[in-house]
Measured scan of single mutants.
Amino acid sequence: QIFVKTLTGKTITLEVEPSDTIENVKAKIQDKEGIPPDQQRLIFAGKQLEDGRTLSDYNIQKESTLHLVL
């Protein structure tokens, strides 16, 4: 699982696999929060994550925290 922290300070927990794409993660966030993926920007280690890449591409491991910017 990974954590996604929103600007409001809320933390969302997501069940993911390293092979999941960023697009996939955004879809999971939409399921939980109702935020359309095209409004979501995910930041990890100061980098904006691209939809077509996977979590493992960015070396995002379990218990990692991503930041969600709208």
Rank of each mutant, 00 (worst) to 15 (best):
D31Q: 15
Q40Y: 14
F44P: 00
A45C: 12
D57K: 03
L42C: 01
T11R: 08
I12E: 01
P18S: 11
T54P: 05
T21R: 07
S19M: 09
N59C: 10
T8Y: 12
P36K: 07
P37I: 15
S56G: 11
P36S: 08
G9V: 02
I22S: 02
T13Y: 07
E63R: 07
V69E: 15
V25E: 00
T6V: 10
R41I: 15
L7F: 13
S19V: 06
F44A: 03
N59L: 07
G9F: 04
I60R: 00
T6C: 13
K62M: 15
K47I: 15
V25Q: 00
V16N: 02
I29F: 03
D38W: 13
P18Y: 13
S19G: 12
D51H: 06
I60P: 01
A27D: 08
T8P: 05
D31A: 15
I43M: 13
T65D: 03
Q39A: 10
T65I: 14
Y58R: 01
I35G: 03
V4A: 02
S56P: 03
D20K: 02
Q48H: 10
E15G: 06
G46Q: 05
G34T: 03
L7A: 15
P36M: 07
V16L: 07
K10Q: 10
D20A: 06
T13R: 08
L49W: 01
V4D: 01
L42N: 00
H67T: 13
K26E: 01
N24S: 12
P37M: 15
K26F: 03
I35E: 02
T13H: 06
V69Q: 10
T8Q: 12
D57G: 04
N59V: 04
G46I: 02
Q40T: 05
L7T: 13
I2Y: 05
V69T: 08
E23S: 15
L55A: 03
V25T: 03
S64E: 10
E63V: 04
H67F: 12
L14R: 00
Q48V: 12
R53T: 06
I29V: 06
I12M: 06
L68T: 02
D20C: 08
L66N: 01
K62E: 09
P36Q: 06
Q39P: 02
I22H: 01
L55E: 00
R41G: 07
L42P: 01
T6S: 06
V69I: 14
Q61T: 12
T13S: 09
K28I: 06
I2Q: 01
K26V: 02
G34C: 07
K62Y: 10
L66S: 01
Y58E: 03
L49D: 00
P37A: 14
L70F: 10
K32E: 07
D20R: 02
S56R: 10
L49G: 01
F44G: 02
V4N: 01
L68V: 05
S56N: 10
I22C: 03
I43P: 00
R53I: 06
P18T: 08
D31G: 10
T8S: 14
P18N: 07
E63A: 09
I60G: 01
V16F: 13
T54M: 10
T11G: 03
Y58I: 03
T11L: 14
P18G: 10
E33L: 15
V4I: 13
F44N: 02
F3G: 02
I43L: 12
V25D: 00
I12D: 00
T6A: 05
L49H: 00
T8M: 11
D57E: 11
P18F: 15
D57H: 14
K5W: 06
P18A: 09
R53W: 10
K5F: 07
I2D: 01
T8K: 11
T65K: 05
P36H: 14
Q48R: 08
N59Y: 07
L7D: 15
D51P: 07
V69Y: 11
K28N: 04
E17V: 12
K62Q: 10
L68C: 04
D38S: 13
D38E: 13
L14F: 05
G46E: 05
D31Y: 09
Q1G: 05
G34P: 02
I60T: 02
L7H: 15
T11M: 11
S56T: 09
K10A: 09
V69A: 09
V4Y: 02
S56C: 07
E33H: 07
I35T: 08
T8H: 12
G9P: 02
P18R: 06
V16Q: 02
L70M: 13
Q40V: 10
F3P: 01
T54L: 10
D20I: 05
L68W: 02
T8D: 15
L70T: 10
K47F: 12
I2C: 03
K10T: 09
D38N: 11
A45M: 14
G46Y: 05
F44V: 03
E23M: 12
P36I: 06
G46C: 09
G34D: 05
Q39I: 11
L68M: 09
E17S: 14
T6Q: 07
K26A: 02
L55I: 08
D38H: 15
K32Y: 07
K62N: 13
D31H: 12
E15W: 14
T65H: 10
G52Y: 12
D20F: 06
S19C: 12
S64L: 04
I22R: 00
K28C: 05
P36D: 08
L49S: 00
T21C: 05
E33Q: 06
H67Y: 11
I29R: 00
K5T: 12
G34M: 05
V69F: 12
V4C: 04
L66D: 01
V69L: 14
T6D: 08
V25H: 00
G9A: 04
E15C: 15
S56M: 15
I60M: 03
V25L: 12
Q30G: 07
H67R: 09
E17L: 15
L68Q: 02
L70V: 15
D38C: 15
L49Q: 00
V4K: 00
I22F: 03
D57R: 03
K47S: 08
Q30P: 02
A27Q: 13
L66F: 04
N59H: 10
D51Q: 05
S19E: 10
